[in-house]
Amino acid sequence: MSGGLEAPSFWWRPPGPAAIALAPLGWLYGAITAGRMARSPAYTAAVPVICVGNFTVGGTGKTPFALALARLLRARGERPVFLTRGYGGRLSGGPPVLLDPDRHGPVEAGDESLLLAAGGPVVITADRAGGARLAETLGSVILMDDGLQNPALAKTVSLALVDAASGTGNGFCLPAGPLRAPVERQLAHVDALVVIGDGVAAGPVEAAARSRGLPAFRARLAARQAPWLKGSRVLAFAGIGRPERFAQSLRTAGAEVAQTRFFGDHHAFTEREAQELLEGAARDGLALVTTAKDRVRLGMSEGDTALARLAQQAKVLDVEMQAEDPQGLAAFLEARLSQGVSPHS
């Protein structure tokens, strides 16, 4: 979830008393969001728009998948531009801004915007239509990170990412569950499903998508070469949507995950938390390891502070999203981009 909040654990279990008690609010929230999604777009960009979204709140790997799409598009001669809200950054609520990594830090831009900058120009704004007007002058295709439920901008292709291990949770809408709107009503605005990682929890959504004739692709996060991890005993800490995937990536790379400290998505670390992490690692002889997203947030810390020391000592496990069938995904995108705006917009 955005803002450093942790998702309630009951969201990811079969519906119980808490979910059932909140269900009426969830029905209302879901109906409002579904109605909003059905509105006609306010603006159609001069270049194609690929939306990378999801059905739920929380992380499903949208940012690394958007970066993977950018690599795929650049290999085919396109010039992708990212359009993002810049969650957690001060620029989010203002007019569209072209990210300057040398001038804008995570306080201004948010952590994910700075990660996207590795793949191309990044336009930050909550105003999707206004952001598209700027982005279309900078490249040949817009990659919109999140925004499936936002009707302001017409989408050429809408991809919905689903975590294979958690699916859509208990199937309820906020605040009773993690869904932003009922799955069936969201599927009406989707062109393809992308299942991330391993697991069977996404099976019902995948079946629903296929019943509509929608293709379903698969992708997974893969750790880049990290020989220093093999045999290391580590304290893994992260403030991301699916921290258990981070821990599993460390184990796959050969590390022994002796301790974990997980926080809410986009978590802003405090001095006390940094000191506890440093002391815990030193006491037990563990290496501190975090994600690139968390390291971006720590990177603004300066001086003789626990946060600055944590930023210096923590190593980063670099990962990238890899499509299982990149040729099939590329062919699908090329076909859809040649057709113009999606009928689901």
Rank of each mutant, 00 (worst) to 15 (best):
Leu83Pro: 01
Thr305Gly: 07
Asp191Pro: 05
Thr33Asp: 07
Val47Thr: 05
Ala222Gly: 00
Phe172Val: 01
Ala268Gln: 01
Pro227Asn: 12
Arg128Ser: 01
Arg185Pro: 00
Phe217Arg: 14
Ala287Arg: 15
Arg74His: 03
Glu6Met: 10
Gly177Met: 08
Pro80Phe: 04
Gly280Asp: 14
Pro101Gly: 10
Gly120Gln: 05
Ser249Met: 06
Thr33Lys: 13
Ile32Ala: 13
Ala45Phe: 06
Gly4Ala: 12
Pro178Gly: 04
Gln149Gly: 05
Ala132Asn: 04
Leu148Val: 03
His344Trp: 12
Ala201Asn: 01
Ile124Asn: 00
Gly4Asn: 09
Leu99Gly: 02
Ala34Tyr: 07
Gly53Trp: 04
Val123Gln: 06
Arg180Tyr: 00
Ala253Thr: 02
Leu174Ser: 00
Glu334Thr: 15
Gly120Phe: 03
Leu161Phe: 13
Ala247Glu: 15
Ala223Arg: 11
Leu28Ala: 15
Gly177Ser: 02
Arg71Gly: 05
Arg79Cys: 00
Ala323Glu: 09
Glu206Ser: 05
Leu73Ala: 12
Thr156Val: 07
Leu298Asp: 12
Gly59Glu: 11
Trp11Gly: 05
Val52Trp: 08
Val122Pro: 02
Pro15Thr: 10
Pro227Glu: 12
Gln259Glu: 14
Arg283Thr: 15
Val81Gly: 10
Leu114Trp: 00
Gly197Arg: 06
Leu286His: 14
Arg128Thr: 03
Ala38Glu: 10
Arg295Cys: 07
Leu28Asp: 02
Pro48Thr: 07
Gly264Met: 08
Arg295Tyr: 10
Ser113His: 02
Ile142Leu: 12
Ala135Ile: 06
Ile196Pro: 02
Ala176Asp: 00
Glu184Gly: 08
Glu6Pro: 02
Val200Ser: 12
Leu115Gly: 04
Phe217Lys: 14
Arg128Trp: 05
Gly61His: 06
Leu288Pro: 11
Arg295Gln: 15
Leu277Met: 11
Tyr87Phe: 14
Thr260Glu: 12
Arg128Ala: 02
Ser9Ala: 14
Glu244His: 14
Gly169His: 03
Arg261His: 07
Thr125Asn: 01
Ala45Asp: 09
Thr137Cys: 09
Asp146Tyr: 06
Gly94Leu: 13
Gly16Asp: 13
Asn170His: 09
Glu279Tyr: 12
His267Leu: 15
Gly3Arg: 10
Gly130Pro: 02
Gln313Arg: 13
Ala109Tyr: 04
Gly35Val: 11
Arg261Thr: 01
Gly231Tyr: 08
Gly254Cys: 02
Ala154Leu: 09
Val296Ala: 13
Leu143Pro: 06
Glu320Lys: 09
Gly241Trp: 02
Phe237Ile: 10
Gln339Pro: 03
Arg76Asn: 09
